[in-house]
């Protein structure tokens, strides 16, 4: 994979539709593996998902990986918050 490796001084071309698809698929596989071992924050899984992580890092640019990893944590927090707020509204309704 050439477009994301930034060893050369040249600006790499933007990802094509195929590149993006490949990256998203590898990301989904890696995150699935993290879910399997019960890890939320990428990098805390130890050696559990080495294979899918390798593929993920091969298919996606560093900036994208950072972004996806951060968003995974944020999305989880959001899910918690949404669930909490739903619980609260239900409680309020019950009291009324």
């Amino acid at each position: 994979m050439g477009w994301f490796s930034r060893s050369s001084a040249e600006q790499s071309p933007a990802a094509t539709r195929q590149d993006r698809q490949k990256c998203w698929e590898s990301r989904d596989q890696y995150f699935e593996c993290l879910d399997g071992v019960g890890v939320l924050t990428a990098g805390e899984e130890g050696t559990a998902c080495t294979k899918s992580k390798f593929q993920y890092e091969k298919s996606c640019a560093k900036s994208w990986i950072d972004y996806f990893n951060k968003r995974r944590v944020l999305a989880e927090k959001q899910k918690d918050m949404l669930a909490q707020s739903q619980l609260q509204t239900q409680e309020v309704k019950r009291k009324l």
Partner: peptide, 9 residues
């Protein structure tokens, strides 16, 4: 921007 991960495409 062209290097946009998922939202722009």
């Amino acid at each position: 921007f062209t290097n946009c991960p998922d939202i722009c495409p």
